[in-house]
Amino acid sequence: MARALRQHVDEEILDRAAALFAQHGFEQTSLKALADAVGLSKAGLLHHYPSKEALHAAALEFSAVRSRQVLDRVAALPLGPARDRRVLELLTDTALDRPGLVALLFRPVTTPEAHSAEHDALLSELFAIDPSDEERLIRVTGVLSALAVLSLAANYRGDKTSWRPRIVDTCFDALGHAGSAG
Rank of each mutant, 00 (worst) to 15 (best):
P131V: 11
R166N: 14
S116K: 02
S116C: 08
I129C: 12
A121V: 09
G182N: 04
A76G: 05
A114S: 11
L20A: 09
A154T: 06
F26I: 06
E135F: 05
R83Q: 12
E11Y: 06
K52C: 05
D169I: 01
L175C: 08
R86M: 10
A178D: 03
C171S: 01
L122T: 11
L71H: 08
V109Q: 15
A103N: 08
H56D: 08
E125G: 14
A75G: 06
R3D: 10
L71E: 06
L40V: 10
E61S: 08
A18F: 00
A114M: 07
V70Y: 00
G176I: 04
L126C: 10
N155M: 04
A58E: 03
S151E: 03
F127D: 00
A18E: 00
G100L: 04
H24P: 03
A58I: 10
L5C: 02
A121E: 12
E135P: 02
T111Q: 07
D97E: 07
H47K: 11
E118M: 03
N155F: 04
L147H: 00
M1A: 14
P112M: 12
L152A: 15
S41T: 15
P112R: 14
A128N: 13
V102H: 07
L105C: 03
A18V: 02
A154F: 03
C171H: 00
N155D: 15
F106G: 01
E61H: 12
Y156N: 08
L90P: 01
A37R: 02
L152Y: 05
L20S: 02
A148L: 09
G80L: 08
S51N: 12
F127I: 10
A153V: 13
Y49M: 07
V168M: 00
A174N: 00
G44V: 10
F172V: 00
Q7E: 13
R139N: 05
A117D: 14
L88W: 02
P112N: 13
R66I: 00
E61V: 02
V109H: 09
S151P: 02
A35S: 13
T29H: 04
M1Q: 06
R68D: 11
A18Q: 00
P165S: 06
L71D: 05
G182W: 09
L88R: 02
R166K: 12
A128F: 06
H8N: 08
R66H: 03
S51D: 06
H8D: 05
K52A: 09
L150N: 06
V102S: 08
A128G: 07
R6K: 12
P78R: 15
A181L: 11
L14K: 01
Q7V: 13
G179M: 08
D36P: 01
I129V: 14
L46R: 12
L126F: 06
A57Q: 15
F26D: 08
H48G: 10
A64Q: 09
V109A: 12
D10R: 15
A95T: 03
K42P: 01
A19G: 09
